[in-house]
């Protein structure tokens, strides 16, 4: 479970980029975080994951505060950033082994998981290459495997489907569904409205640092009866 309580953030004094954000992503839920460019999606994700310091309020991951107990909180989630260009000089297998060491995964378990996941995501044959030789999509897959390795209860993904081929995107969506069915949480940001519509249990729309809507797709349709599609609703909400 991810709880965001009264969170605010400013980069410049008196200009809040996130303004008193309150949000609860329950266990067993896939939550889609939507908003136009610069709305505050990535800033929110950066605060949830401990990358950015929170100015006011707090965030809890399975009850662990990201400000008070950062290491415990971080053990409870896996994060896929929006840019997969990292550790380019490492080989894919070295990156995964490094991540497994950071999360203290047993040798036998890590071998099995790396083999299984890399086959599922079809990068098994590329694991011995340096990441700099991977395509954008392959790098994205590698990061996702890195997250899945330690089987965290909470998945936090920043634009996870960007750059993935249709099969990998489908596989990832299926994995997200399976993960939530086991009573776990998936929190992800996206620009693809159809994905949010078909995949998410609940949707949150943020603009200019304020949460404008939180609820299921059905609730949203009821609230915006005049609109025909999610695209219409999104435009209406964010233009207001």
């Amino acid at each position: 479970m991810i709880e965001i309580k009264n969170v605010s953030k400013s980069y410049i004094k008196n200009e809040k980029i996130i303004d008193n954000l309150n949000l609860e992503i329950k266990d067993g839920e896939i939550f889609g975080f939507l908003g136009p460019n610069g709305a505050g999606k990535t800033t929110t994700i950066k605060m949830i994951t401990g990358i950015l310091k929170i100015d006011e309020g707090d965030i809890f991951i399975d009850g662990q505060s990201i400000t008070e107990n950062p290491v415990n909180a971080k053990l409870n989630f896996g994060f896929v950033p929006d840019s997969p260009d990292m550790f380019l000089k490492l080989k894919g297998i070295e990156y995964l082994n490094f991540i497994a060491d950071i999360y203290k995964i047993d040798s036998k378990i890590r071998k099995d998981r790396i083999e299984r996941l890399s086959k599922e995501f079809e990068i098994y044959d590329n694991l011995n290459e340096q990441i700099q030789n991977y395509s954008h999509g392959m790098r994205q897959k590698l990061l996702i495997i890195g997250v899945l390795l330690h089987e965290p209860k909470n998945w936090i993904l920043d634009e996870p489907l960007t750059g993935l081929d249709p099969k990998s995107a489908y596989d990832l969506k299926e994995k997200m569904k399976a993960h939530s069915r086991k009573g776990n949480t998936v929190f992800f940001s996206t620009h693809v409205l159809e994905v949010a519509e078909k995949l998410c249990d609940r949707i949150g729309i943020i603009n200019k640092g304020k949460l404008l809507f939180v609820g299921t797709y059905e609730e949203m349709k009821k609230q915006f009866k005049d609109s025909n599609s999610l695209e219409d609703i999104f435009l209406k909400v964010t233009e207001e």
């Binding site: 082994n97 490094f98 060491d101 047993d106 040798s107 890590r110 011995n128």
Partner: peptide
């Protein structure tokens, strides 16, 4: 580019301390 595909040796995967890994 100059990428070469070689087989991954899974026997080399072993657990290290966090410090050593880092």
């Amino acid at each position: 580019g100059n990428s070469k595909k070689t087989k991954t040796d899974f026997r080399k995967i072993k657990r290290n301390s966090t410090r050593k890994a880092y």
